[in-house]
């Protein structure tokens, strides 16, 4: 004989359903909070940035250098320094990072990998203020000034090399993950056709992991452009910088400009538009890194699951 089921049996506990709704609301709030904070930051940046750009004399945006307290807001100075330092950093980090990734993923024995990977992660965990100090006390005198005897103690070169050290583990770990995600069956196909290990890395593993590798490079570039402490400490030019393309000169990046003025914000608050200029530079940097990140997201999405 079968038991008959009534609606009551299937109704369940109303308290449990209320609890589900409560939990859902809490998670929703957490999700919304991050969106709200982002929005607040953009609003705060945009308001002051707009005040700056609407009140500043356009001629002051293109002068000999970035000296906000004297009313010289040469934006190209900051952009050149930012791109120069990030560029030097990438020149160091791309070959080192990709080389390390290829070694760890394709060549290293499991034992070597077990030792090297955590070392790389330690490098990734070094606070940038420590790297900044190291750039100033080691890279600058022991490398930059030895190779280029005319170089000053504070140079964009030293800062760029420091940034390179900072982003190398980022490129290495993210690219290594991308390379390891390439199925073994593709490597076997390549070896089975008489390909050597280096051919397999170059012609099969690397192309198949390209989207992840490119994403790691863009992420690293975005990190390099947003890095503050190393450039603040090692590139010199606190308070202002002349426009220059020479990496052996001191320079001021967008981040360092904001940091150096904001650390004494009471001093610049009253002086013309210097305080507002920080918001403008901040917004500019935000837009640059935002677009880099969204390009990287799009690349990853487009090429995901190609194999």
């Amino acid at each position: 004989m079968t038991q008959s089921i009534t609606t009551v049996d299937l109704t369940g506990d109303p308290r449990r359903r209320r609890k589900e709704r409560r939990v859902r609301a809490i998670f929703l709030a957490a999700g919304l909070a991050s969106i709200a904070i982002s929005a607040l930051i953009i609003v705060a940046l945009s308001g002051e940035a707009w005040r700056f750009i609407s009140q500043v004399d356009p001629a002051a945006l293109f002068t000999v250098g970035w000296f906000p307290r004297r009313g010289l807001y040469d934006i190209p100075t900051l952009i050149i320094a930012t791109v120069l330092i990030a560029g030097i950093g990438m020149l160091v980090a791309v070959p080192l990072g990709l080389g390390a990734a290829a070694y760890l993923s394709e060549y290293a024995s499991p034992r070597a990998r077990r030792r090297l990977k955590p070392t790389l992660e330690i490098l990734a965990g070094i606070p940038s203020v420590v790297l900044g100090f190291w750039a100033l006390t080691f890279i600058s005198p022991e490398i930059v000034q030895r190779v280029f005897t005319s170089a000053k103690p504070f140079t964009m070169m030293a800062a760029g090399l420091g940034v390179g050290v900072l982003i190398t583990p980022l490129i290495a770990t993210v690219s290594e993950d991308a390379m390891r995600a390439v199925p073994t069956s593709l490597r076997e196909a390549s070896y089975g056709l008489g390909a050597s290990r280096s051919t397999t890395v170059r012609s099969v593993v690397f192309p198949a992991s390209l989207s992840g590798v490119v994403a790691s490079l863009i992420l690293a570039l975005s990190r390099a452009m947003g890095e503050t402490m190393i450039v603040f400490m090692a590139a010199g030019a606190v308070g202002g910088a002349l426009r220059t393309f020479n990496p052996l000169e001191p320079g001021q990046t967008m981040t360092a400009a904001v940091a150096s003025l904001a650390t004494g914000s009471d001093q610049v608050a009253g002086e013309g538009l210097a305080f507002q200029s920080l918001f403008f530079v901040g917004l500019l940097l935000f837009l640059i890194t935002l677009s880099l990140n969204s390009i990287s997201n799009r690349l990853v999405r487009r090429y995901r699951n190609r194999y």
Binding site: S185, L186, A189, S190, L193
Partner: peptide, 12 residues
């Protein structure tokens, strides 16, 4: 030469 259990063409 070798042919494997699961078809493994390159993503090319």
């Amino acid at each position: 030469g070798m042919v494997f259990q699961k078809p493994n063409p390159f993503p090319k």
